Computed example of a mutant assay.
Amino acid sequence: MKKISLGSMVFDLLKDQPEKQLTARQIAKQVFAVYPAYCMAKREASTHLETENDVITQLAAEIGAHRPALQIKHPQIKTTAGRPKKYIITRKKRKKRKSRQQKNKALFAMVNLPNC
């Protein structure tokens, strides 16, 4: 059986729910429901995780701690600025911003000045 990482689980869960904003805790609850063997192995390997809630809390903490690496590996994952951070995969294409050079070129064309 192939070992799957928590980051891959998070990405798969978010990918299956595009445009839906989820907190790390909500994602952790879904990981617990969808990947029970992973969670039970984590619980058995730890001396501190005694209840299901302990495992969910630990998963949420790990998701938050690995957020920067997760976003580097999966740039489709975005987060909100506030707290608690909400994770989202959006299918909308971001409008490409005009570069400063493109803006200046357009400005020069409007006022009929030669390009510098």
Rank of each mutant, 00 (worst) to 15 (best):
K2R: 14
K2E: 15
K3V: 15
I4P: 00
S5Y: 10
L6F: 07
M9C: 15
V10C: 07
D12P: 00
D12K: 10
L13T: 03
L13M: 10
L13A: 04
D16A: 14
D16P: 03
P18H: 01
E19Y: 06
E19D: 09
E19S: 09
E19L: 01
K20S: 10
Q21W: 10
T23S: 15
T23A: 06
Q26A: 13
I27S: 09
A28F: 08
K29Q: 15
K29M: 04
Q30V: 00
V31D: 06
Y35P: 03
P36I: 03
A37D: 14
A37Q: 08
C39Y: 05
M40L: 10
A41R: 04
K42E: 03
L49M: 12
L49E: 07
E50G: 08
T51F: 03
D54Q: 05
V55A: 11
I56W: 05
T57R: 09
T57S: 12
T57F: 08
A60M: 06
A61S: 15
A61R: 14
E62V: 08
I63Q: 06
A65K: 07
A65R: 14
A65N: 05
H66L: 12
R67G: 00
R67Q: 12
R67I: 01
A69K: 11
Q71I: 07
Q71D: 08
I72N: 08
H74E: 06
H74A: 05
H74F: 15
P75I: 00
Q76C: 01
I77F: 05
I77Y: 08
R83A: 02
P84T: 05
P84M: 10
K85G: 00
Y87I: 01
I88N: 04
I89M: 06
I89V: 12
I89F: 03
K92E: 09
R94A: 05
R94H: 09
R97Q: 15
R100V: 07
Q102E: 15
Q102I: 00
Q102K: 10
K103Q: 12
A106T: 11
L107W: 13
L107T: 01
A109N: 13
M110W: 01
M110C: 04
V111R: 07
L113Y: 05
P114T: 05
P114H: 02
N115L: 14
C116R: 09
